[in-house]
Nucleic acid binder design. Structure first.
Lengths: 119, 119, 119, 119
DNA sequence: GTGGTCTAGACCACC
DNA sequence: GTGGTCTAGACCACA
């Protein structure tokens, strides 16, 4: 996996985990790969994955069974959805609209782009 | 002024400068505040503002008259517009659309939000 | 059974065993459940219970008859009482008092809580 | 500084920081030592201190000014007090009382110990 | 100077 | 096998 430079790797991994849960690839109560396993898969130090998991555990998206591994928390999908929607609507969208105005782009143009994009 | 955590302060200042130019608050060939002046205004180390100006100077949005100060480059407004439009359409929009899909938000909802937002 | 995160599971099980002996639920010379039995009861790996029993055996609180099972050692109750009292008075209590001071809680309040608690 | 074995060093450091704040040694809005500084003071790797600070930052007990250092959050003292009191009353005290009963220690004896202890 | 991140490697307790 | 912690050392962006 390739990582972008402007964001910490452990956060990019966290996002990819969330996506997997949102997409239903990892379901609730599923065991997810061990830190070592995912580390070698991604070509990353296990410590970095451990940091990702610690972060996700604090957000109650995954939980740990000692000596066994990490599991997807029941309700994780809903939790991710609501928190990301909230973050999106409250933080990103206002800046997005502001930028539209500043750059003189209409919402109609965005719509057209979207339709082209999803065709 | 308050700064967000996820972006370098000098870049956030740069954005606010660009906004002022886009809005016509600072017109082309206008002198903009000195590094020290803006620094105290914003409650920020002058070095940080210096970095902002250096950054904007490289992008040819402002230029320096030695011993006098910084000035808005002729054509700066157009330059900002085109570069930001390009950056916006090529880099932000795809991620924006992807997020919409992931969060199950329709482009229609965005439109509604926009209309409410600008009323 | 649910386990807390801050202490090893096998020690939490050991405590519950000691409690049962203190309460007289398991009397001296009684046979206690097999490793496998208790493991499934608690939803825990038998190895973990084995570790608990090994630990208690070392403290001479239980003993093993090969091929038959584990039994409560004669005098176990007294042994648990004295060792735990010692540990409690020497190690827990000082930290407990220190915390009271730090949090501004008086011994009087503790007494009141206790009386409410045991009513 | 010496550390006990049964708890992670970074958590023990966190506790000592909280104590300093509770005791008023570090007041709100004060700058606390840099990770390197405190690391060498305690004879500990700077990474470990960094982990402590990250942990305390998440609990909003300290905050970071980029490139400058960590500062005690306004209201940190109150925050620590309430969270620790809550933790103490809800989690520790019930177990404490339970142990008293099991060990046959009366609340009166505790009081006597306390008075001896604080003389 | 500051903190943030990452790697490599180690040791540990636990299951 | 699992994760948790710590160290040493490095590089980076930032103020």
């Amino acid at each position: 996996m390739e990582f972008k430079d402007h964001q910490a790797i452990y956060l990019q991994i966290a996002e990819s985990v969330c996506e997997k849960i949102l997409n239903g690839i990892w379901k609730e109560e599923d065991r997810i790969p061990s830190v070592r396993e995912l580390g070698t898969t991604l070509g990353v130090n296990p410590n970095t994955v451990a940091r990702t998991y610690e972060h996700l555990q604090q957000r109650e998206i995954i939980y740990n069974k000692r000596g066994i591994g990490f599991f997807v928390t029941p309700g994780a999908r809903r939790e991710i959805l609501t928190s990301q929607r909230k973050q999106f609507l409250q933080e990103e969208l206002p800046g997005f609209f502001k930028k539209l105005d500043l750059l003189g782009i209409t919402i109609k143009e965005i719509e057209d782009f979207y339709n082209k994009h999803t065709q």
